[in-house]
Design a protein around this nucleic acid. Sequence first.
DNA 1: ACTTACGGTAAGTCATGACTAACGCAACGG
DNA 2: CCGTTGCGTTAGTCATGACTTACCGTAAGT
Lengths: 103, 103
Amino acid sequence: MTNATDGFAALADDTRRDIFERLAKRPLSVGELAEKLPVSRPAVSQHLKILKAAGLVVDHAEGTRRVYRVDPRGVEAMRGYLDRFWDRALAAFKEAVEEEKDS
Amino acid sequence: MTNATDGFAALADDTRRDIFERLAKRPLSVGELAEKLPVSRPAVSQHLKILKAAGLVVDHAEGTRRVYRVDPRGVEAMRGYLDRFWDRALAAFKEAVEEEKDS
DNA sequence: ACTTACGGTAAGTCATGACTAACGCAACGG
DNA sequence: CCGTTGCGTTAGTCATGACTTACCGTAAGT
């Protein structure tokens, strides 16, 4: 878990990205999310399960409700993955552009 | 294109992430990629089409071959998306942890 | 021109996954 | 207690997408 690669699959779905962005604004319960979204409550529950497995959200009980919030550590893991490629890709890209100018 | 959200779907697939990581090391042709991967050449071609649409790679002709390389701008776009949530999520997360200690 | 190398496209198959309805379970409130 | 609220899970359906085979276009080499 908190394996950056799972995060991509988690955020690939539109509904899940919607949920993620709403939780980024403020913590919400499953029911509160389902109200705003065009899908059923069980669907939201399943999406949250996937986001949680990817390390992007955490939940805690609050009476009978379960409140979810974004876990910045999961976001950081994905940033770290992209960073590993960014430096190298940027250097190689600029170099290629320079050679292109020699036409 | 270069829309960060398409990048998540693009990197969600294992084969596509494999292609992306190989291209990050050095530019490669379609055939060179297909040699190393456990899928057919047309499959690689289709994956590259998706990565290109997501703004993560660019291609250029080289004789009859087409050489693909990583486009750092696409990577940067995804980083930017994650950054928008990271600050806010981190602050909210720390605050919640502090309240948790009051138990 | 003919052939060969290289790659994108089309059509069809099969697995994955997003969704709903129905059910089960725990935590309060009367 | 007993009903209600709030979630998670299961089973089943339907759409999406990853893959292969076959085919077509294009750019050299002879």
